[in-house]
Amino acid sequence: MTDETDQDAFTKLDRFFEELRLEMRANPELAVRLVKAIGAEVSFEGTLAVKLVNPRELAITSDEAGFRAAFAAMTLADIKTVLKAHNLASAVDMKGLQAPELIDMAYRRAVAKAAERNV
């Protein structure tokens, strides 16, 4: 009887984690929040990076090389999207700049903003 109950509990837990895994795959924002909640470091690639990277947070948790690597794989349009979404640059600021110049700006401003807010 006890074995059967344990078996039943494990089955239910398997089902629970399977649902969680499926939801995390479908909802990367949730996945990032959960992974951060258990204290793990998160890195991003491709389109997911554009959606989820927080430059100010990255400026604190990563070194400069790591910061630049996170942006290096992005297109010019994606870099602009990230900078605008995180209020690190206006359209006026970014006009005519190429990716390396934008990444320089992103790093400089993210470090400064993070320093303003960090206790």
Binding site: A89, S90, V92, R109
Partner: peptide, 8 residues
């Protein structure tokens, strides 16, 4: 965004 940032 920064002291040298301008926007319309």
């Amino acid at each position: 965004p920064a002291a040298d940032s301008y926007d319309t």
